[in-house]
């Protein structure tokens, strides 16, 4: 089987200042992969580069066999990569429903959008209750659900979630992780970026550990959880 996403020797950064130094990773269809690492390791930069918000300084990103390194973000979404950015970034002055409609901006069929919205309201019942409410009035957890729902409504082939646990209370983090697992089991390929190393590796199939812009470790998630290096550096054990 060919990987759905293949990143080779990616160098990326901001205004020519590199942050990511030669990252390579592969994601197979249907997998749930976690990228973990400390703050400032280059996780979000990697995500932003894959999603097209910034472009690689060098290296290559291919999605379903197509080179997407220099496409802009809206083109990459159309190909099937949906990126739920760090900090939720919902459209605060618009209603929950409007946010969802915009998530499906590229889908022309109105009935299809409504069908998908109903589906997502089944997964996130609280969003149905809040449908008409202005998004910025939602609680942090609800906003995160909205961000994920907005990312899912375009029916992406690859869903990338960035630091979705940030600012959520522990019980909510657990619930989010369960939701991600469920979404993955329903067929979506998921790339998860987390500072919460343990929680992320517990639900993931495979993982990559990033430090200072480089991958220092990769493998099956349970192996990583049990590895001396991860336990010492990230789990405080």
């Amino acid at each position: 089987m060919d990987p759905i996403l293949k990143v080779s020797n990616l160098h990326s950064g901001y205004d020519g200042v590199p942050v990511v130094f030669g990252i390579s990773l592969e994601i197979m269809p249907g997998e749930l992969v976690a990228i973990v690492g400390a703050n400032g390791a280059g996780k979000t930069t990697t995500m932003k580069t894959i999603s097209g918000l910034i472009h690689p300084l060098s290296g290559n990103i291919s999605f379903l066999g197509q080179d997407v390194s220099n496409l802009s973000a809206h083109e990459i979404l159309k190909l099937g990569i949906s990126y739920v950015p760090e900090g939720r970034r919902i459209f605060g002055k618009l209603s929950v429903r409007q946010n969802m409609y915009l998530g499906a901006y590229t889908e022309k069929s109105q009935t299809e959008v409504s069908r998908r919205m109903d589906e997502l309201f089944e997964i996130f019942p609280v969003l149905r209750k809040r449908a008409k409410q202005v998004a910025e009035t939602l609680s942090g957890g609800e906003q995160q659900m909205l961000a994920i729902a907005r990312g899912l409504i375009s029916k992406p082939k690859l869903l990338m979630l960035d630091e979705m646990s940030l600012g959520l209370m522990p019980s909510m983090v657990e619930k989010m992780m369960e939701t991600v697992k469920a979404v993955n089991e329903a067929g979506a390929t998921v790339l998860l970026v987390e500072q919460m190393v343990q929680e992320a590796l517990e639900i993931a199939d495979r993982g990559y550990v990033i430090q200072n812009g480089k991958i220092i470790l990769s493998g099956q998630a349970d192996e990583l959880l049990n590895s001396e290096q991860v336990r010492k550096a990230y789990l405080g054990m």
Binding site: L53, S72, L77, R89, T106, R150, S154
Partner: peptide
Amino acid sequence: MDREAAELVGI
């Protein structure tokens, strides 16, 4: 409101 987020939903 947020140009990057708008790009990310395909606008």
